[in-house]
């Protein structure tokens, strides 16, 4: 399945998946994902619960490796490199491809140490204070925390915590930021702040975002993939991509009836 992505293909491709099947043990969670994710754009994954969008995004930084029964068929290329080749170190992959999670997960350390965690791991030799400040500013959090960098990151409000986590991900200057429902636990005002932030971040980063919020996908993203789920005769539910295209196409003139029904809120 190759959607009309002329404009995407003209820009650089960051991820390319080729007939990707994802398994947990013998259970096939997602099938036949073939897609390309363009550079410096926001690509949204939408779809009903259990359709495998989070599972797919977690393959892009090999976070699924932590689950023992997990394995894939097919290929994922990151800038032409096979991500699951045997000589690829998943730890190095995750240093280039950052992740923001559904539930804000700051470390129980100071705000400063939360940001400095990644750079310290990577042996950053430059001016740490400056890097911390720059990262927090990029996450639009500086005014909230500039006077209390030494206090606990876990004492911030939920929305601030999530922006702290985004700042933490930015601090290692990754190439890509994956976001797994980053606003699911936030109030509407914090959500808008994070969405504004996304627009600024895409200047420098490639962003892939999983969201349950269709307004969010239509407001913020450049490309949208709609996932759906299908049960086989044994009742196992396998996710797949129904349609992947520019966001305005998905929301205004989708080719598939299921997409039309989902984005108009008739199911899901």
């Amino acid at each position: 399945m190759t959607p009309n992505l002329e404009s995407a293909l003209q820009t650089d491709t960051v991820f390319r998946t080729d007939n990707l099947d994802i398994y947990y043990g013998s259970f096939k969670a997602v099938r036949d994902v073939t897609m390309e994710i363009p550079k410096n754009a926001i690509t949204a994954f939408i779809g009903p619960s259990g359709c495998g969008k989070s599972t797919v995004i977690r393959c892009f930084n090999r976070l699924n490796d932590l689950i023992k029964s997990f394995h894939i068929d097919g290929k994922i290329f990151y800038k032409g490199q096979d991500l699951y080749a045997s000589d690829v170190d998943p730890v190095e992959v995750r240093r280039q491809i950052g992740m923001v999670f559904q539930k804000p997960n700051p470390f129980p350390k100071s705000i400063y140490d939360n940001i400095a965690f990644g750079p310290r791991l990577l042996g950053y030799k430059g001016d740490m204070d400056e890097l911390v400040e720059r990262s927090i500013k990029s996450a639009a959090l500086w005014d909230d925390v500039k006077d209390k960098l030494k206090s606990l990151g876990t004492d911030l409000s939920g929305g601030q915590q999530q922006r702290l986590c985004i700042a933490r991900a930015i601090a290692v200057q990754p190439d890509v930021i994956l976001m797994d429902e980053p606003c699911a636990a936030l109030d509407p005002i914090s959500t808008l702040k994070v969405e504004d932030l996304l627009q600024e971040l895409k200047e420098n980063y490639t962003i892939v975002i999983v969201t349950h919020n269709m307004q969010q996908a239509s407001r913020s993203s450049d490309y949208t993939a709609f996932f759906n789920v299908q049960a086989n005769e044994k009742g196992q539910r396998t996710g797949y991509i129904v349609e992947y295209d520019r966001t305005e196409v998905i929301f205004q003139s989708p080719k598939h009836k299921a997409t039309q029904e989902y984005v108009s809120g008739r199911f899901g």
Binding site: L63, R95, F107, P108
Partner: peptide, 14 residues
């Protein structure tokens, strides 16, 4: 919490 472990792995910690 598992989230903290994932946060560290997500930042490229071994």
């Amino acid at each position: 919490p598992l989230e903290l472990r994932q946060a560290a792995y997500g930042l490229g910690a071994s």
